[in-house]
Design a binder for these strands. Sequence first.
DNA 1: ACATATGCGTTGTTATAACAACAGAAATGG
DNA 2: CCATTTCTGTTGTTATAACAACGCATATGT
Lengths: 223, 223
Amino acid sequence: MDFLFLSKTLLFRGTSPREIETMLGCLHAEQKGYKKSDVIYHAGDRVTSLGMVLSGGVSIESDDFWGNKNILDHVGPGQVFAETYACVPGEALMVNVVASEPTNILFLDTSHLIQICSNACEHHSKLIGNLLLISAQKNLNLSRRIFHTSSKSIRGRLLSYLSDQAIRKGSRDFTIPFNRQQLADYLSVDRSALSNELSKMNREGLISVDRNHFLLLEMAETF
Amino acid sequence: MDFLFLSKTLLFRGTSPREIETMLGCLHAEQKGYKKSDVIYHAGDRVTSLGMVLSGGVSIESDDFWGNKNILDHVGPGQVFAETYACVPGEALMVNVVASEPTNILFLDTSHLIQICSNACEHHSKLIGNLLLISAQKNLNLSRRIFHTSSKSIRGRLLSYLSDQAIRKGSRDFTIPFNRQQLADYLSVDRSALSNELSKMNREGLISVDRNHFLLLEMAETF
DNA sequence: ACATATGCGTTGTTATAACAACAGAAATGG
DNA sequence: CCATTTCTGTTGTTATAACAACGCATATGT
């Protein structure tokens, strides 16, 4: 087990490799390997362990009633998944967690962290604090997405998302981390309709767009 | 200050009124009163204190570019707001927090909880654990909403929401906590279009609906 | 360099949701 | 109890997004 690697993750931030070694015992740490497309957690499962990706990567997917797959998120090395469900025992997963490549996962049972007095092991409290930070940040990401998809028009969603990016990057001139399909998925709209709306906004002089690079123009007064 | 009241809240669960009294010092607790429509936190603010509603109630609202108000949530006595922002210092609020009636708020500065070693006060760890639970639950609520609004048709959103409710309530026969307008807001659709779709589904024998009481019929195979 | 696969924009058609307006039912408040 | 307000379903019209199909440009990989 690579304790040095773990000590650099957000979850174990502020703990030494030596401390981690003792903690892994409390957390009933178990490592497991998966092949590509293996399902790590199924929708409907109830879990008490979060997963940390040691190597490889996993996709968080949701299958709707008609069998359409929808990729909600991708989790890479050092990041965790299912931590929310692990913290709220009894909640059934709404998503599938699937290995997107050969992947090693470290499972950490959080029920001991939370239910038993958190002073049982003096490092527990640091871990819980880190979990809280991870949870709060995920919270903000979810809120942001709801915010950006609350408008009923594609243009409204784009303006919401793009101006947020501009504020966040501190410039009207920025690059987004999505391609068209991903942006369309994020905003829950059709890709071609999105492309169409973007070029319309381009023609109208609202924005200047090239691939995933944007420049906001007239909307300046909004701020 | 009503310590007994506080000890019954989710945030202070598991602590005695006596303990709370000492903790409030660490948290720089401050109480403040507001009149109806007073703005407690403005969008754009950066905060380090969460708010707990002692009496009255607050609305979490978002104003979009064109000045449309959108009520995202309502927080009542014993519940907290802005805890996510308080836990992730430096993030600007995306929403306004507005008193929906005469309201008393208790502000608790979480920066001490998180940044300083959490063992500074032995009760801190319990509070952080409670915060983690609150955060994780809010997380699930947000995820659920994203999930239910990811379908592009009104019917798809309704089926997603209604079957989730059925599973959650453990019966095909259940009552929802929304009226039509609130359900429409939750699913980000137009109210009259929602009404329309519901009666269509009713006519088709998919569901049986009366006000906010529902009975799921043919969709049984989905489970 | 070639063949293949992705990503992107464009167009036209179709389905569907938003919107506006209204009437009846239900709840609310004197 | 009546008056008033809120809630709900219905309809028709209009705007708009989804969808399907295509061509071009840009990777990708061998």
